Amino acid sequence: MNAAARLDTIQRIATPEGCEIDLRVAGPVARARAWFLDFLVRFGVWLLLAIAGSVIGDFGIGLLLVGAFLLEWFYPIVFEVYRNGQTPGKKACGLAVVHDDGRPVGWSAAFIRNTLRGIDFLPFFYATGFVASLLNAQGKRLGDLAAGTLVVHVEATPRQVVGAHHDVGSEAPPFPLTREEQLAIIEYCQRAALLTPERAIEVAAAAGPLIAGLGGEAAQRRLLRIGNFLLGSHAAASNS
């Protein structure tokens, strides 16, 4: 473990599958660096809007005001929802916003945590948010406390635990699956390596019709093959 990992707060989360994951909570310095990079991005866009507005005339002033509003309030919300909790600044700094239990943030949590930035900013330059982050072990500002979110360090490359299952091959599911069922199988595939062999087989047995007629390791391997197939489909869809 390197020095940075020792200094950062480790938040241990117990998952419903019976395993534990560690979230490395980001401190105020890392978060301030990400905020400054996002500020530079927003400022650059704002300058472009200002130049365009000066050319257009009176209508350009209205365009500038609307653009400034959207940049200030919706820029972080949209990126956090659609980019795995990462604005450009957070991504550059290796940070992401997640729920307290490690789940990706949705519209509600992103809206709450970013709307309350106005309070965190008081009385000047996020003083209230900084003080609040020092008063709790998770380093949360008021927006994070209200939304139930954390800002954590993430790996430089996405975690692909499924790579450990390439030896089992790939298999299409025997019948169409709902989106929720697909996500559940993918989640199992990504976390199976973190479970004990007995627990991994026990969880696989809950797949029901997908492993009909199979048991033990055979059932687990079929579920992993289906997970590999689904992950391949999702990767192809994201690259198209």
Rank of each mutant, 00 (worst) to 15 (best):
G89V: 01
A137K: 15
K90W: 01
A110K: 00
R191L: 11
V105L: 02
D100Y: 07
G85I: 00
I21K: 07
R42Y: 01
Q138P: 12
A92K: 02
Q86R: 00
A236W: 10
G139E: 08
P197A: 10
A236L: 14
T115P: 08
L223Q: 08
R199M: 13
F124P: 09
A207L: 06
G213A: 07
L135W: 13
W107I: 04
W107D: 03
D58T: 14
E20F: 11
I119A: 09
L194S: 11
G44C: 09
I56F: 11
Y126E: 03
C93W: 01
G139L: 10
S238Y: 12
R222M: 03
M1K: 06
A205L: 10
D58M: 14
H99E: 14
V168K: 07
A132V: 15
F59E: 15
R42C: 02
V41E: 00
P104Y: 03
Y82R: 02
E181K: 10
Y82E: 00
E202D: 13
A146Q: 09
H153I: 07
A219W: 02
G139A: 12
P174D: 14
Q86V: 00
P176Q: 05
L224R: 03
P174T: 09
S238M: 15
G85H: 00
Q220M: 14
A207V: 13
I186W: 05
G44P: 06
G94C: 12
C93R: 05
R6I: 06
L177N: 02
F69H: 05
F130H: 05
A192N: 05
I186C: 13
Y82D: 02
F175I: 08
I21E: 07
N228E: 14
L223V: 04
T128L: 15
G216N: 07
P197V: 11
L64T: 13
D100W: 05
E80I: 01
T9N: 10
E155M: 12
E202A: 12
V161K: 15
S133I: 01
G139T: 08
W46P: 04
L37C: 03
L195I: 05
